[in-house]
């Protein structure tokens, strides 16, 4: 399982990376915003994207919309995406759901929450497959 972690704060990327490792996901890669993440996602054959919302350059919500709308790469368009963000307005959560997000975690969060959401995302994907 190849995972991309996108956050403009290196400390948050490191926290998520360590939590993912504890959950058994060791193949993690990092990007600091949507603009650097997009070419990695297009060429890197990733299986899962964990992204922040509020970042300079391209924001997480725009990264989500961009990959969902990609007509050239069906695997990328269907990539499971988990938003981990301090953004907590109802409109924002609804907007992310409409854009096709698979999970949404508000910061500050716990390791248990991350585990539950990731488990839920993959259970659903296996059930649908």
């Amino acid at each position: 399982m190849k995972i991309l972690i996108v956050d403009d704060f290196s400390t948050m990327r490191r926290i998520i990376k360590n939590l993912m490792r504890d959950l058994g996901y060791t193949n993690t890669h990092e990007a600091d915003d949507g603009i650097t993440a997009l070419p990695m996602l297009k060429s890197g054959a990733f299986d899962f994207l964990v992204t922040d919302w509020n970042m300079p350059g391209m924001q997480g919500i725009d990264l989500l919309k961009t990959i969902r709308a990609d007509p050239t790469d069906p695997k990328l368009a269907a990539l499971p995406v988990l938003l981990v963000t301090a953004e907590a307005r109802r409109e924002q959560i609804i907007s992310a759901a409409e854009a096709g997000v698979n999970g949404y975690i508000v910061k500050p969060f716990t390791a248990q929450t991350l585990k539950e959401k990731i488990d839920k995302i993959f259970e659903r994907l296996h059930a649908a497959a």
Binding site: A86, A88, S95, I105, V106
Partner: peptide, 23 residues
């Protein structure tokens, strides 16, 4: 703009979820 990034909610506000279970 209701979708513009606001950063962490510094205090309880209407229309802002406060716990993961609300999300």
């Amino acid at each position: 703009d209701p979708l513009a990034p606001q950063g962490p909610a510094l205090r309880a506000q209407a229309n802002v979820v406060s716990v993961q279970s609300d999300v």
